[in-house]
């Protein structure tokens, strides 16, 4: 009896430790599929950090270069800039989406087709300077699909 309790407690402790370790929750990652010869595309997702931190680096075997970009509209002109980091205030949902931030995949090794899974390695840095690396597989949504889950996912879902 006692042994079981200890084991259960240990299991809970392990779970708690594992959960505590993942400082950042990554939801609905996706990349935009490309056409042949297109050498760049964007990756998008929702990030929620438990404590103040920042996305400071992104890498992918699918692209030679990966950059963090911010897009802004000024007087009907679209401006895109590479940025060093995306701040993730504690508990706040930060969206990487068209019209805002995105991860830019440059010099793709091959065409990204709808349904492909693109591995991304993201590095986050906490306020204490500690770095944590997380890996996600981002499914490719159709180039001509909606950035919102609805329309794009319509093609993505299996019948």
């Amino acid at each position: 009896m006692l042994k079981t309790s200890i084991l259960t407690a240990a299991a809970y402790a392990l779970c708690a430790a594992a959960t505590a370790q993942a400082q950042v929750e990554i939801d609905e990652p996706w990349v935009r599929a490309t056409v042949a010869q297109q050498t760049a595309t964007g990756a998008f997702m929702r990030l929620t950090s438990r404590s103040d931190s920042a996305l400071v680096q992104a890498e992918s075997p699918a692209a030679r270069h990966v950059e963090i970009h911010e897009m802004a509209m000024e007087n009907d002109v679209m401006k895109m800039r590479q940025i060093d980091r995306i701040s993730l205030p504690a508990g706040k949902v930060v969206e990487l989406k068209p019209g805002s931030y995105h991860i830019m995949l440059i010099e793709l090794s091959k065409q990204i087709k709808e349904g492909d899974h693109i591995p991304l390695t993201l590095t986050f840095q906490g306020a204490d300077g500690k770095r944590e690396t997380m890996r996600v597989d981002a499914p490719a949504r159709p180039l001509a699909g909606d950035s919102k889950a609805g329309r794009g996912a319509r093609h993505g879902h299996a019948h």
Binding site: A40, R64, H65, E67, H69, M73, D76, V77, M78, K79, M80, R81, Q82, M104, I106, E107
Partner: peptide, 11 residues
């Protein structure tokens, strides 16, 4: 940009 270039343009 760091490794390439992008385009600002009227939308």
């Amino acid at each position: 940009t760091g490794s390439s270039y992008t385009m600002d343009h009227s939308a």
